[in-house]
């Protein structure tokens, strides 16, 4: 009895050991990363590169910490008609990993029931942005070649001085954005100046050329920067001052730098300007102005000194004229998604 049982059980155990030792070999032949992970990486790549995300307007990248839950899907494309052309503001928001947690990336960009690990990187020239963990061996991968659209800059340098100075100056300089012209659908989405999604950047340099020469002075005082709007579809269109917290410094809404110093000023700075003024109006601020596709937005720089220390005056149009606004060329980049 015992000898018989031993023989039978030994044969069974030997066979079982053989089978168990074969199972890992069976799995090793199927590098699982080459299968499901590649599909997930491909899907994430498509979502990021070919989709503007959801919500589209107001764009998801404007949602702050309080409204993060409203972001349903992260996409970096400028619009759904322009796959592979990414918007730099969306890119910056996406790669801000102090704002998005790993769970946000999983639920808004990668999707899937399994908590995948990821590493997403975007390289353009020597500029490298990256989120996620270091790569282990054996991961799913996709690489997409993209173009990145940067916002335009209106640089008002000394060459504009003859045009924008007058002896009968009212010490007010205006930068005018005509939305009907900017949002004209005949301009492709990849080259559009859209203040609702991209920052408006106004830089006045060579301020010396704008100073009053008859009244010798080395600076002029920038009293206020105000925003005015006009809606031409109204019965009696006229410019009205937009209510805004002009005296609060908020780098999420705008940044104002004077003379190249890192100090952030409010929009009623009352400080002397010697060489330059740089104002960046963020889309989060523009969205507070309740503008539509016909509105005209004025940014008015007021200098108030008695006697007048600057001759600056006039209206600078923020439009598609390359002398008025410098639109940088699209930059080529490569977006890599790795999932494991």
């Amino acid at each position: 009895m015992s000898l018989d049982f031993l023989t039978g059980f030994t044969i069974f155990m030997l066979a079982l050991i053989m089978v168990v030792s074969m199972v890992p070999g069976l799995l090793a032949g199927l590098e699982s990363s080459g299968i499901d992970y590649d599909a997930v990486a491909y899907r994430t790549g498509v979502i990021l590169v070919e989709d503007p995300g959801w919500p589209v307007y107001p764009p998801w990248e404007m949602n702050g910490e309080a409204h993060k839950d409203e972001i349903e899907r992260i996409g970096l494309a400028v619009s759904k008609e322009t796959p592979n052309v990414l918007l730099s503001t969306k890119v910056d928001a996406f790669f801000n990993d102090s704002f998005f947690t790993p769970d946000d990336y999983r639920s808004k960009a990668i999707f899937g029931d399994i908590p995948y690990s990821y590493n997403i990187s975007l390289r353009s020239g020597s500029d490298l942005k990256q989120v996620g963990d270091p790569l282990p061996p054996g991961y799913g991968y996709i690489r997409r070649v993209v173009k990145i659209k940067e916002p335009g800059v209106a640089v008002i340098n000394g060459t504009f001085a003859p045009q924008y100075t007058s002896l009968s100056s009212n010490q007010e300089f205006t930068v005018r954005l005509d939305f009907a012209q900017l949002l004209d659908p005949s301009v492709g989405a990849a080259y559009r100046i859209d203040p609702r999604t991209e920052p408006v950047n106004v830089t006045i340099t060579d301020f010396l050329s704008y100073l009053n020469t008859t009244e010798p002075s080395t600076n002029a005082t920038l009293q206020t920067v105000t925003f005015w709007k006009k809606d031409p579809t109204r019965p009696i269109p006229q410019f009205t001052k937009i209510p805004f917290s002009y005296s609060t410094v908020d780098p999420n809404l705008y940044t104002l730098h004077i003379d190249g110093t890192p100090t952030l000023h409010s929009l009623s700075p009352g400080v002397p300007v010697e060489s330059n003024i740089s104002l960046v109006l963020k889309p989060a601020a523009t969205s507070l102005f309740t503008l539509d596709q016909n509105s005209i937005l004025d940014i008015r720089f007021n200098f108030g000194d008695t006697p007048s220390r600057t001759n600056i005056t006039g209206i600078h149009h923020y439009d598609y004229n390359p002398t008025n606004v410098t639109l940088p060329d699209l930059r080529t980049g490569v977006l890599e998604v790795a999932v494991w």
Binding site: D4, G8, F12, A15
Partner: peptide
């Protein structure tokens, strides 16, 4: 006396055959 041995062999054959089919 043969039974445990026979059944051990049968179980082994079943398992090995499955592995073969699976592979």
């Amino acid at each position: 006396g043969q039974l445990y041995t026979m059944e051990g062999v049968a179980a082994g054959v079943i398992m090995l055959l499955t592995v073969y089919i699976v592979i």
